[in-house]
Simulated scan of single mutants.
Amino acid sequence: MFNALLVTKDEDGTTQATVTQIDKDRLPDGDVTVAVEYSTLNYKDGLCIGPGGGLVRTYPHVPGIDFAGTVETSDDPRYKPGDTVVLTGWRVGEMHWGGYAQKARVKADWLVPLPDGISTRHAMAIGTAGFTAMLAIMALEDHGLQKDNGPVLVTGAAGGVGSVATAILAHLGYEVAGVTGRPDTADYLKSLGASQIVAREEINETVKRPLETENWAGCVDAVGGAMLARVLGQMKYGASVAAVGLAGGAALPATVIPFLLRGVNLLGIDSVMQPYDNRVRAWKRIAKDMPMDKLDTMIQPATLSELPKLGSDILKGQIKGRVVVDVNA
């Protein structure tokens, strides 16, 4: 038996999440059984703990789209008992039982060996949010971003993706401008390395002019919507925006003018179905370029029993930094 956050749905559609003891025999099919040590909290997790958001197909369900832990048993020669591994994406925690439990069983192809220098706790302080941030930074660099090009804008900077992106970019020597709608997070963002704080209201509305002054050498955008449209018109010639989220909406009220007259690139970043080789590349970069002391300042510790409230909070935009869930606490 092991503890898990089990979400059930009543006949009237009401969901309820409670910490429950589950028999190991109820774990789904898979090649590798992992003794989970830590998980984390993402926006998708908030949906899966609560209303589902169309992500959860069958109930009862164990959410948690990320986890890190130690291999317990393996039918795949790539992994042996005692190996430390991390999992993000692959619809785990949505269609497949996830990491809000002391045990998980998954396909071997979904796991990544944890690089030296990253503990399972730090891996979950990074999680999907940090993994996505690194994918975005790698994409910007692959498309020509360099430290002397000018400031890099990070929207939703106080959130999970934004916090990690800010810390890594600053550690790499980039000048970082962090966008936030919460003035109380300014000191937090500066502690991560942001050299400039941009108030959300300054950049959150579209303007009639398709092009504005060239301000940004690159952008990690977690907001989408009107803000992304506005940012596209402020990018420097040939610069790129890595789009990682849609906290501000899925619509894009923009024109093609920035693409045609300034050669701006809009790069889509998906972390869920990312190929294995690029996952390994990203985690190696994280081990090398993530300042772990900055990561520690982002962490909000939590237990399984605290997740229902935290899941509600993240849907309301009330979480700062990274929630790290000790599933054994």
Rank of each mutant, 00 (worst) to 15 (best):
T70H: 06
T70L: 09
T70D: 08
T70I: 12
V71T: 10
V71D: 07
T73V: 14
S74W: 03
S74K: 07
S74N: 08
D75E: 14
D76K: 08
D76Q: 08
P77L: 05
P77V: 08
P77F: 05
P77M: 05
R78T: 15
R78V: 15
R78N: 15
R78F: 13
R78L: 14
Y79F: 14
Y79A: 11
Y79G: 13
K80N: 14
K80M: 13
P81T: 06
P81A: 09
P81S: 07
P81Q: 10
P81I: 08
P81C: 05
P81R: 10
G82F: 03
G82L: 05
G82H: 07
G82V: 08
G82W: 06
G82E: 05
G82S: 03
D83F: 07
D83W: 10
T84C: 14
T84M: 14
T84Q: 15
V85H: 00
V86H: 01
V86Q: 02
L87G: 01
T88P: 02
T88K: 01
T88F: 00
T88V: 12
G89Q: 06
G89H: 06
W90P: 00
W90F: 11
W90A: 04
W90D: 02
R91G: 04
R91E: 10
R91P: 00
R91N: 11
V92S: 01
V92G: 00
V92I: 12
V92K: 02
G93F: 04
G93H: 08
E94Y: 04
M95L: 13
M95K: 15
M95E: 12
M95I: 06
M95F: 14
H96T: 11
H96L: 12
H96A: 06
W97V: 00
G98M: 05
G99D: 02
G99Q: 08
G99S: 10
Y100S: 00
Y100L: 03
Y100A: 03
A101Q: 08
A101D: 07
A101T: 10
A101R: 12
Q102D: 05
Q102P: 07
Q102G: 11
Q102S: 05
K103A: 12
K103C: 12
K103Q: 14
A104G: 06
A104C: 10
A104Q: 08
R105W: 04
K107T: 11
K107Y: 02
K107C: 07
K107S: 13
A108W: 03
A108R: 04
W110M: 12
L111P: 02
L111I: 03
L111H: 04
V112Q: 00
V112N: 01
V112I: 12
P113A: 09
L114M: 09
P115K: 05
P115Y: 06
D116C: 13
I118P: 01
I118N: 03
I118T: 07
I118V: 13
I118D: 01
I118K: 03
S119Y: 05
S119A: 09
T120W: 06
T120G: 09
T120P: 11
T120C: 14
T120D: 09
R121S: 05
R121I: 02
R121Y: 04
H122A: 15
H122I: 13
H122N: 15
H122P: 12
H122T: 14
A123L: 07
A123P: 06
A123K: 03
A123M: 07
